[in-house]
Write a protein that binds this DNA or RNA. Structure first.
Lengths: 217, 217
DNA sequence: CCGTGAAAGTACGGCAACGTACAGACCGGA
DNA sequence: TCCGGTCTGTACGTTGCCGTACTTTCACGG
């Protein structure tokens, strides 16, 4: 599409390594990222202590779209969850491209709507579903975005992502492993039974996927 | 402002009564609402059972802004929480106004960003905070939007809003009443100690307020 | 090869909220 | 005035997760 070439021209390819913080809550957004093989986690906090992942973005999306809403400040901390490459554009260039490319603007607006729906799903999921179901869901999301069957994440990180104790993740992960849906050792997770994992996850996974498909498929 | 008169011209004033459903999840948004004295609750559901209020909109905001994102389908059920009046515009007119009024578009885009932040706050709040704190927070939000000190809501409704048991609301509400922060009988709630209620609520109330102020104040 | 630190396993009491159920209180209409 | 339905109070055992803490296991660099 025309939107795509227009974007690519102003982007540079960058390598992102896991753990890297690309935006801080309340701070200016310097760049917009369009992940290729990397994926980015947005984490909200309260009291600087309690945290919760509100969005996970891979090649299907972008980080920094609030610039398209005329807001140049990040609402959350954004960190690289999966190492890899991404296309990057300066905030300034992004604004320019948006002005001359109404097609891109339309797409990104629809994307924002999808993002809103996803965040609401995170809310209701955190409220109602068991840790194990939520963990299974996250594994699926990560699996999709990592492209590969194996990706890196520790129980500690998962605890911050789902907003539960590290010990709680250990229990849930052990259960998923016992059911032979995943395998893991010291931060390396492998999905061994995709179908089984989908059955173990709460409906939120399917719901989120279907929303994405119907607005950006 | 020019945006305002432009909007008002195409609006009709309507009376909304509590409980009225103005949009259904997955269904087309027929009208955009700018509440005056009414306020509107957006409620997400999962499995048609479990529900959670993701946004509460009064005269400070609007319902139907996803149309400004190019999406004509409501992500959630929207129902009137507080009876009163609102300005209403057809979806069609709204699209037209958006096209000829870039100022309005900019404001609404910023509003969407605020909405996104608020929903994330709901998520983290539901995840970490006690029912009583969350209830206090909701009372404050309702108090702001109702303008009056008294508004109508039953424990049953509050249970759906906060995603907890009705019995849990009864306990929390009784506690707030014992502390003389509110008074209530059969669906009629009166805020008697605003300051005290603010102290009883979690930080999410202040956080949400400050985000609103900094982007739309 | 061993030491060190990170990652993960496991345990404990404690508690908030759960699901369910029933009884009392109140209001409006017949 | 009484009835019926709505709203609220309250109870019970259950459970999922909490906070904390200690141990075990593994990977890696010296």
């Amino acid at each position: 599409m025309a939107e795509r070439t227009d974007v690519c021209r102003r982007c540079t390819i960058v390598d992102l390594s896991a753990g890297e913080v690309i935006a801080e809550s309340g701070m200016p957004i310097r760049h917009v990222y369009f992940p290729l093989t990397a994926f980015i986690s947005s984490i909200a906090t309260v009291n600087g202590q309690s945290s919760l992942e509100v969005s996970l973005v891979g090649r299907e999306g972008a980080f920094g779209v609030s610039l398209a809403m005329g807001v140049g400040v990040s609402a959350w901390r954004a960190k690289v969850q999966g190492s890899g490459s991404a296309m990057r554009m300066s905030a300034e260039d992004f604004r320019t491209v948006l002005n001359v490319n109404p097609g891109l603007r339309r797409i990104l607006q629809r994307y924002v709507h999808v993002l809103v729906s996803q965040i609401a799903q995170v809310a209701i999921c955190a409220c109602y579903h068991l840790v194990e179901e939520r963990l299974a869901r996250w594994m699926l999301m990560s699996h999709d975005r990592a492209v590969a069957d194996t990706f890196h994440v520790t129980h500690e990180q998962l605890a911050d992502i789902l907003g539960v104790r590290r010990a709680g993740i250990s229990m849930a992960a052990a259960s998923l492993q016992a059911r032979e849906l995943i395998r893991y050792t010291r931060g390396k997770v492998t999905v061994t039974d995709r179908k089984g994992l989908e059955a173990a996850a709460c409906d939120c996974y399917a719901a989120t996927e279907s929303i994405y498909a119907s607005f950006l498929g």
